[in-house]
Simulated scan of single mutants.
Amino acid sequence: MKITLEKVHGSMNTFYMVDGEERDDYANLALQLCAKDQGVDGLLVILPSNSAHAKMRVFNRDGSEASMCGNGLRCVARYVCEKEGVDEAVIETMKADLAVRREETLMDGIETYSVQISPVSFQLKDLPMEYDNQTTLIQQAIPEISEEIMFSAVAVPNPHLIGIVPEEIQKSPEHQKKWAEKFNGQNNYFSDGVNVSYVTKVGQGIFVRTYERGVGFTNACGTAMTASALISCMSDMVPFGEVAVYNPGGMVKCTVNKSGDTFELLLTGNATRLSVHEFQWEEEQVDSEFTAFEILDEQRQYEKFIEEISVVVEQFAKRKE
Rank of each mutant, 00 (worst) to 15 (best):
V165P: 01
E303M: 14
V286N: 12
P143N: 09
E284K: 13
E308W: 07
D41K: 10
E88V: 12
P166V: 02
I138T: 13
L265C: 08
N13F: 03
S11L: 10
N257G: 05
D132K: 13
E111G: 00
Q32N: 06
E82P: 00
L124S: 12
E321V: 12
E289Q: 13
C75V: 11
N60C: 12
F293P: 00
C34G: 07
Y302N: 00
N195L: 05
D108W: 01
R57Q: 11
Q134F: 08
E242T: 14
F290M: 08
V45E: 02
T262Y: 08
M56F: 08
S259P: 00
V313E: 06
T4Y: 06
V215P: 01
E168N: 14
V208M: 07
Y113W: 13
M234W: 04
Q116D: 12
V313L: 10
A27L: 01
S288I: 12
N50W: 01
L44N: 06
N247M: 14
C34N: 08
Y131M: 10
R101N: 08
Y79K: 15
R300C: 00
I117H: 05
N247T: 14
A52M: 11
F293L: 11
Q176L: 15
I164D: 02
G216S: 09
T255L: 07
Y189R: 09
F279S: 01
E130F: 12
F151V: 07
Q280N: 11
A35D: 14
I295H: 07
W179C: 04
Y246I: 05
V276P: 00
I162P: 02
M150H: 11
M94K: 09
Q170F: 09
C34Q: 02
V90K: 08
T268G: 03
I142P: 01
F279Y: 15
V311L: 15
A54W: 05
E82G: 00
Y16F: 15
L265M: 10
R23H: 10
F207A: 02
T4C: 11
K182T: 11
G72Y: 02
F207C: 03
A77D: 03
E303I: 15
F217L: 15
S51Y: 13
P143F: 06
H175I: 14
F15P: 03
G109K: 05
A227F: 02
E144Q: 13
R273G: 00
